[in-house]
Simulated scan of single mutants.
Amino acid sequence: MHGDDTSGVDTGDRSPTARDRLGDGRPQNGRPRDILGRPLPHGSVGVPRVPDDLQLPPHESLPLAQRYLDDGMPFHAHDVLEGTWKATNGDDRELWQGLAQLAVGLTHLMRGNAAGAVTLITRGRDRLTPYGAAPPHGVDVVGLVGWADTVLAALDRGSVEVPAPPRLAST
């Protein structure tokens, strides 16, 4: 499930303007990635990637994303949560988008991009807030909003210390 299979990706032309493409012609970055999702030079050894087409149900998505967060891999957690968001219709769609935004906001913070972290963590918090009264799937909305507020307050004070990862689900 976490391999770097690039089957179907054309990676033959390495000219500066060449792009990796999926079999249907859509762009696909086949370059290896570091632990925070940054592209590495072709031929480098990166960490295994989350498959682009991964779409898990909530009861599988939350624990996998939490493992990635706990392992210091919020970019990967974002990919897992984004897959669930994109596969979700209806009332829970904003919830999954908010969770994905919190994870990518943490990614920005770990990469040293405080402005990007503020933007994405704020967006994620704002998407989660309406679910506070009755959160679906055991998502700890109150805890996540509190985590986001704490991180945003620290960033506002000029602190760029990376916080402990948030807990996605109530235990």
Rank of each mutant, 00 (worst) to 15 (best):
G132N: 15
T150N: 11
D13L: 00
T150I: 00
V9F: 03
L144K: 00
S7E: 14
S159K: 10
L168S: 13
L40P: 12
T17R: 12
L128G: 03
G37E: 10
P63K: 06
R67P: 10
V104F: 07
D71P: 00
R157N: 12
V151C: 07
G112C: 06
D5S: 14
R33M: 11
E161N: 12
G83V: 07
V118K: 12
A87P: 06
P32Y: 09
G12W: 06
P58K: 01
T6I: 08
W147K: 05
L152I: 13
G3I: 09
L155D: 04
V145P: 12
L56T: 02
W96N: 05
T88G: 02
R111T: 02
D91C: 02
Y131I: 08
H76T: 01
D140C: 03
E94H: 05
Y131F: 15
A100H: 08
L106A: 04
V47D: 09
R123G: 15
V151K: 01
Q55K: 09
L56W: 08
L64T: 06
D52T: 09
D52G: 14
R111K: 12
V45I: 14
V145M: 05
T150H: 11
I121K: 01
T11I: 02
M73S: 14
L152Y: 10
G90I: 11
R19W: 05
R125Q: 11
G30R: 00
S170W: 10
G112S: 08
G37M: 13
H42T: 03
P16D: 06
R127H: 13
R38Y: 07
A115N: 12
P32G: 10
L102K: 10
R123E: 13
P165E: 10
M73L: 14
E94K: 14
R111W: 02
G90K: 04
A164T: 12
L95V: 10
A154M: 05
A87D: 03
P27A: 03
H2E: 15
T6V: 09
D5C: 00
